[in-house]
Design a protein around this nucleic acid. Structure first.
Lengths: 179, 179
DNA sequence: TGGCTCATGTAAGGAGTTACATGATTAA
DNA sequence: TTAATCATGTAACTCCTTACATGAGCCA
């Protein structure tokens, strides 16, 4: 059900079409809760039926009509209800850890680890650039900005520990100095 | 499909019934790929049909019959095939990060963060105890043991960064010194 | 001419969760 | 006598993924 709330949070920041939301999810919220456009359209339809969002259609020339969704008071109430409750522990599901655990193909693991490391570095770079750009003075943050910054910090920690882990794996499998 | 491979890895270590596997998942492999007994029974049935595992039934007095599953050569081949390929990046889905991002209820977030922190500490303690007990001399490890240790290291890194993140959140929301 | 962006969806299937079901033994 | 452990499953449901579908404009 958390996709519902992720969409509501995003709509609180600004009304949007399904298409817009899909792009936002690719760029920002999706780092914490990825979603495809197909899923987003389905959930929007469901939430409209529940009265949590309302849509207005805009015609556009040369382009398909655009349905813009906005959060309703009922949607706000639902967000508040959800925000007040505890969040569940998220399940860790790592194909990679299972593969390590079943240790069979040293070279495949090394290759895999290198790819993962590069991926972590890329995302860390992206997060750090966002942090420098949008939150240069964290001690001055309040409310929504503070929350968004803390969420970003979570991403930064995740990527850093991912790099550390990859380095440990590479050191153990290839010996130090060969990376 | 990775539950299939997690079960196969576990069966490689030792043949087991669905019930045994469910307990093993609760205790160890499940830290990287949680699974309920219902799921495990379903996957075992599917893998038996595919010829990846074979079962023998043992009668027991005073207790229900026990179906013990073992991996077959076809299952070994499948595991090797899977181990040689790259592993996908796992999707991060964090209810908690979405909640932070939508920052609405400071007290609820603080309470939530404290619970999460305690949870991370508990698991970290467990992992560190396992490490000290089973892998006192990591530099001497090889093969399957090395893989299992590296997987455990991943868990340790995850919990540590989880604690760091929680501390950062609590510091930002309550100010330093009040924790 | 071929692919990208904008914009909306449907449909089928795989994976995971939750609830239900049965039945004997053993420990508090 | 109540609950937990051992041991097996079925059924319904939600959620996510992948593939398919349409159609106009724009850039190389």
């Amino acid at each position: 059900m958390a996709l519902d709330h992720a969409i509501l949070v995003s709509l609180t920041e600004r009304a949007a079409s399904g298409y817009d939301l899909a792009r936002r999810f690719d760029a920002s919220i999706g780092h914490f809760w990825p979603a495809s456009h197909q899923q987003i359209y389905r959930v929007l339809a469901r939430m409209q039926e529940a009265g949590w969002v309302a849509s207005t259609v805009q015609e556009q020339d040369g382009r398909p009509d655009k349905k813009t969704y906005a959060i309703t008071p009922a949607g706000e109430a639902e967000l508040n209800r959800w925000a007040a409750g505890p969040s569940g522990r998220e399940a860790v599901r790592s194909d990679f850890a299972v593969k390590l655990r079943g240790f069979r193909d040293r070279d495949a693991i090394i290759a895999d680890t290198r790819v993962r490391r590069a991926d972590h570095v890329a995302r860390l770079t992206e997060y750090e650039a966002s942090e420098a750009r949008f939150y240069p003075d964290p001690s001055a943050l309040e409310g929504a900005d503070l929350g968004a910054w803390l969420a970003l910090r979570g991403g930064i920690h995740t990527e850093r520990r991912g790099i550390e882990w990859c380095d440990e794996i590479l050191t153990a499998l290839e010996g130090p100095g060969s990376r």
